Simulated assay, not measured.
Amino acid sequence: MTLIAVLPGDGIGPEVTAEAVRVLTALDLGLTFEEAPVGGAGYDADGHPLPSATLDLARRADAVLFGAVGDTRYDGLERRLRPEQAILGLRAALGLFANLRPARLFKGLEDASTLKREVAERIDMVIIRELNGDVYFGEKGIRPTADGRRQGYDVMAYAEDEVRRIAHVGFRTAQGRKGRLCSVDKANVLETSQLWRDVVIEVAAEYPDVALSHMYVDNAAMQLVRDPGQFDVILTGNLFGDILSDQASMCAGSIGMLPSAALNDGGKGLYEPIHGSAPDIAGQGRANPCATILSAAMMLRHSLNRPEAADRIEAAVATAIAGGARTADLGGTLSTRAMADAVLAAL
């Protein structure tokens, strides 16, 4: 039995994960789904964004399908109880250190991108973001200054081994694509980034078939708009990867189209759309389910060893989009359910 932990979360999370489960069920792969609350829903149910029963399910499952967490209703909580802490807790508890975020322009969405058609249609990259280090996990707090004012601080730190293991993921990914890896950092001003660059260069010696380049993050942000087609695999840290992957999503038409995978050393993964919980449209049936459906395809490929089924889902999404299926974020009128229906029809 293959067990999938379904953690819908908050906002539009339950809507989009339900459609991804429909698509997976249609493939008749013998998957078993078990659902549990997380994020704000977890706090409401158990007083914590990552209830112990939810974490236990995630540990037992073969893979985790995650929706989204967050809502302004919880902004008054202390930081450790806010919905977003659930995803950080899952990453730490499951050892999920490698975040794969593919971005490509689906045929038919050329005009959905804010970039010129001839620029946008060349987008086909994977952003690999390290997930367990950087400012998100460093020491943080508020402290008084000498004059009695407040100072906030967040420590950015990377250990050599953390950089080395994510670098290997990046180079192996590039080997399976076009053989080009661009490491993005800020080594001109950050010691953390200098270590990152030094270690990536060391690891590169083990992959002579991959062309390595380096780019400062501010330049990378500019190049994603100017010429995104130049990138094959982008390797970067937690903070920079978070920002650049969201930017890449809009270059490719909509954040509602981009999936992601968070993997550990054993191939177990958590799969989620890169978009947030969008509480402003929650419950209205307006969310685009494609990013979550494509995340389910990544789950089949990376954790469940079902690459043919993954190919079928991705081809079905491409067929539905090429046939004119559009939710509001893509300039269309289809509901969340109707968009998934179009994917199922193509499947």
Rank of each mutant, 00 (worst) to 15 (best):
D242C: 08
L65A: 05
L27M: 15
Y136V: 09
D10K: 05
G170H: 11
D209C: 05
I201W: 09
A262T: 06
L131S: 00
A5Q: 02
G237I: 06
L96Y: 05
Y158Q: 07
L31C: 07
N132S: 13
E160G: 07
T327F: 11
G76E: 08
V210N: 01
A320Y: 12
A296G: 09
Y43F: 15
D242N: 12
T292N: 11
P279S: 01
D218V: 15
R101T: 09
D265E: 15
R150K: 12
G95R: 02
M1F: 11
E160N: 12
G67P: 03
L239Q: 14
V169R: 14
A325R: 13
N132A: 10
K140T: 14
G170R: 04
G42V: 03
R226K: 14
L181C: 11
R101H: 04
L235Q: 11
D111N: 15
Q175T: 13
E121N: 12
L212T: 04
T336I: 13
I201R: 12
P307R: 12
A248K: 04
R59Y: 05
A26M: 10
V135S: 12
P14H: 03
S249W: 00
S245D: 09
C182T: 15
H48W: 06
K268D: 06
Q247P: 02
Y74H: 00
G141E: 14
T114L: 15
D242I: 09
G30C: 12
T114A: 14
A261E: 06
E118S: 15
R177G: 07
E162D: 09
H214V: 10
V233P: 12
A346V: 04
D280Q: 05
S277D: 04
T2N: 07
D185V: 12
T292R: 09
Q151C: 10
E314M: 07
R101G: 02
H214S: 08
T327L: 09
C182M: 14
G331R: 06
S254I: 12
T173N: 14
V69S: 01
S113H: 03
I166K: 04
A26Y: 06
R79V: 08
D311M: 09
A204K: 06
G70V: 05
V189P: 12
M215K: 00
L65P: 03
